[in-house]
Amino acid sequence: MKNNLFWKTMEGLRPLPNVAQLLGWKLVKHEQRTREIFVEFDASSALTKPVGKIQGGMLTAMLDDCMGPAIYALLEQHEIALTTKMATCFLRPASPGRITGIGKMQRRCGDTCYTRGELKDSMGRTLATATARYKIIDLAPRNPVEA
Rank of each mutant, 00 (worst) to 15 (best):
L16S: 11
L16H: 09
P17W: 03
P17Y: 01
P17N: 07
P17R: 02
N18T: 15
N18I: 15
N18Q: 15
N18P: 12
N18S: 14
N18M: 13
V19C: 13
V19I: 15
V19R: 08
V19E: 11
A20L: 09
Q21E: 12
L22A: 13
L22N: 09
L23I: 01
L23M: 08
L23W: 03
G24I: 00
G24W: 03
G24K: 03
W25H: 03
W25Y: 07
W25R: 01
K26R: 14
L27C: 05
V28I: 11
V28N: 07
V28Q: 06
V28T: 08
K29L: 01
K29D: 09
K29E: 10
H30F: 14
H30I: 06
H30Y: 10
E31Q: 09
E31V: 08
E31F: 06
E31A: 10
E31M: 04
E31H: 07
Q32N: 13
Q32L: 11
R33G: 08
R33N: 14
R33L: 15
R33P: 12
R33S: 14
R33A: 15
T34M: 09
T34R: 11
T34H: 11
T34V: 05
R35E: 07
R35W: 00
R35C: 08
E36F: 03
E36C: 05
E36V: 00
E36H: 05
I37H: 00
F38L: 06
F38N: 08
F38C: 05
F38A: 06
V39W: 00
V39Q: 02
E40D: 13
E40T: 05
E40K: 06
F41L: 04
F41S: 00
F41T: 00
F41M: 01
F41D: 05
F41Q: 00
D42V: 02
D42M: 05
D42H: 10
A43V: 00
A43H: 04
A43D: 05
S44C: 02
S44F: 00
S44Y: 02
S44D: 06
S45C: 06
S45V: 09
S45F: 09
S45Q: 11
S45Y: 10
S45R: 09
A46F: 13
A46E: 13
A46C: 04
A46L: 15
A46M: 14
L47T: 10
L47K: 07
L47M: 11
T48D: 06
T48N: 02
T48S: 04
T48Y: 04
K49R: 15
K49A: 09
K49F: 01
P50W: 03
V51M: 14
V51N: 15
G52V: 07
G52K: 04
G52S: 04
K53F: 13
I54M: 07
I54Y: 04
I54S: 08
I54L: 04
I54Q: 05
Q55H: 10
Q55K: 07
Q55A: 08
Q55T: 03
Q55F: 11
Q55S: 02
Q55M: 10
G56T: 07
G56H: 10
G57R: 06
G57L: 04
G57P: 01
G57E: 00
